[in-house]
């Protein structure tokens, strides 16, 4: 069975470490915040200028001056800090964020990522995505392995305009967890009940498959 959005978030959460500063993109990455292990301290960075993003506010706590990068009303945790956009991107571009999780349309064997622009469709902009992929060393991309029509999103060469070049090393799809190195995807884990054959069939780019591919665990 392909992973649900929640299971994908749960698997990404296994990459969290105590004391990590983490930036979560919009969509599945946002859900990772729901799976931070009990007792672990993680600070969430929101690129509009908040380090230590908390829960959504209650009706009484709502404040128009407290939002996250998705423009949603939020709260700040104890020990949070708030700063300007330049300071926020100094953290990101300076490589100070420990883990960045973001979605994508495509990735390829050279670590290229396309996530912001589909030619012919209205282009809204890249927001902070290009800064995040260029600035971070530890990035996990979350996306479905193939489109609804079965076309692979793990490619030899990205077909869409890039968000960043040679910057992705880890990809979690609904079928597998893979790492990118030496011009190939390396299959590390498969979703429970998903066959290696299905992953091979749905991966267009060069794929290295070890003799044993363990099933993913979530805790």
């Amino acid at each position: 069975m392909a992973l649900s959005r929640e299971q994908m978030a749960q698997r990404v959460a296994r990459e969290l470490q105590d004391g990590f500063y983490v930036n979560l993109g919009i969509g599945i990455p946002t859900l990772v915040a729901n799976f931070i292990p009990e007792g672990m301290e993680v600070m969430l960075q929101s690129e509009n200028g908040l380090l230590g993003m908390g829960q959504f506010p209650t009706e009484d706590e709502i404040d128009a001056d407290m939002i996250n990068a998705g423009k949603q009303t939020v709260t700040a945790v104890t020990g949070a800090s708030i700063f300007s956009s330049a300071e926020s991107f100094a953290m990101i571009r300076g490589g100070h964020v420990d883990l960045t999780v973001l979605g994508a349309f495509e990735c390829d064997v050279n670590g290229n990522i396309a996530s912001w622009m589909i030619p012919g469709k209205l282009i809204k902009g890249m927001g902070g995505a290009m800064d995040l992929v260029a600035g971070a060393d530890n990035i996990i991309v979350t996306m479905t392995h193939a489109s609804k029509h079965g076309e692979s999103k793990l490619l030899t060469n990205c077909s869409l305009p890039l968000t960043g070049q040679g910057c992705i090393k880890k990809v979690l799809t609904d079928l597998a967890y893979l790492e990118i190195a030496d011009g190939a995807f390396h299959l590390k884990e498969r979703a429970p009940g998903v066959s290696v054959e299905e992953i091979i069939e749905k991966t267009e780019g060069k794929l290295i498959v070890p003799d044993h591919v363990p099933e993913m665990t979530f805790a």
Partner: peptide
């Protein structure tokens, strides 16, 4: 890119006419 935009304003205000960044390298930007 958002970080480039913030830095363009910051640098502009600080009298720095241009800067180098990895953001956008190899992309349409």
């Amino acid at each position: 890119p958002q970080g480039t935009l913030a830095e363009k304003m910051r640098a502009g205000g600080a009298g720095i006419p241009a800067f180098f960044t990895a953001t956008g390298y190899g992309t349409p930007v």
